[in-house]
Design a protein around this nucleic acid. Sequence first.
DNA 1: TAGAAAATCAACAGCATGTTCATTTTCGAT
DNA 2: ATCGAAAATGAACATGCTGTTGATTTTCTA
Lengths: 204, 204
Amino acid sequence: MNERDVPGAAKAKDHRARVTQILIEKAFTQLLRAKPIHRISVKELCEAAGINRGTFYAHYADLYDLLAKMEARLMADLQRALEPLLAEDAQEPTLLALTSVIFRCLKENEDICAITLGPHGDREFTARLLDMARERCLAVYARRFDATPRQLSYYYAFVSSGCIGLLEKWAQEDMATGAEEIAAIASGIMVYGIEFLKAPDLRE
Amino acid sequence: MNERDVPGAAKAKDHRARVTQILIEKAFTQLLRAKPIHRISVKELCEAAGINRGTFYAHYADLYDLLAKMEARLMADLQRALEPLLAEDAQEPTLLALTSVIFRCLKENEDICAITLGPHGDREFTARLLDMARERCLAVYARRFDATPRQLSYYYAFVSSGCIGLLEKWAQEDMATGAEEIAAIASGIMVYGIEFLKAPDLRE
DNA sequence: TAGAAAATCAACAGCATGTTCATTTTCGAT
DNA sequence: ATCGAAAATGAACATGCTGTTGATTTTCTA
């Protein structure tokens, strides 16, 4: 029988395949630090990774496919981390609990985040990221505040994108500070607005 | 003598050049609505615009150069609009005044915003957009609140990106609502945080 | 150790790129 | 209205990357 047959964890790949995948991804992330994806060629990537170009095409359709697959892994990770909090029957999570889970998960995927959230990342992905939690969060807000749907959606648009911005800054600083601290800042601003700047407990 | 010699307004171009520029930009924005820039070829764009490929290269180095030039125009517009508010000797603007000016300017450049803020837009540009007002805004905050620089920078990161998110949503809705209303929402959230959802004056 | 899977290498046609040059069209100024 | 300048066109070109194929070699798994 198979030693591992977890449905979500996909196929147990060949050792060689795993190595080349790592080589490719590492070279890719390094290149992406230096220039935007559209300035990178498959040829170039393969030379940097030290693998054959044919091998690349055996795994990915093109660079964007590669990027998409890396992003998909991150999404799945986040989904898994968020699942217990957002389950229908679960207790309503606090904003801080939510952001803590998210930021902790993203810290574990720092290398990918550094790309997708960096200046060369794609907006489409962050949009998908936000979409994941939208409905649930809106439902929670709607239950707690009797605001109009329009107000709610605007608030969510602002606040979720704000978290992304904070994330970006965090990633720029190589995620040096703890995930919990950043999460506290995020929820602090979300809740208190500009009063956050007066909150003495967050001063350093 | 030259009829027009405004230093900022650049060169008074030939009538033909202006026409082709418009044709190119129009075709470009239309294509960008359908697919990301990396799926668009120069050949394709020129056919859509009904111009010769050689003509395109006479004006731009590549598609990204074209995009950059369009973005630069928007930036200059915004800079001009913001100048009086952010001048050293000017009275300190309210958050609402600031956002109003910004959102109004962006509404006037709706077509470009729809691209750069859409899912296929580039993060680099929005980052530059935020950078423009950063120092000044931070200085204003620092004067009003005695928060640490670190707190300030986090707050700014969150809030400016939040505005972008709001902007995005607004652009998705074809900027149907007035710029002032959106600006009020933005500053409302920035100031009041989640209390914004209870503010009765903004209910519809 | 044998068979299967993966990586390599070489070669290929196809295509977009970016450039050049001669030619034609259009503009602006006289 | 005309002339010279500027811009657009069309064609042709070398170039480089692309994506695919088939034969071969290496490496893993059972």
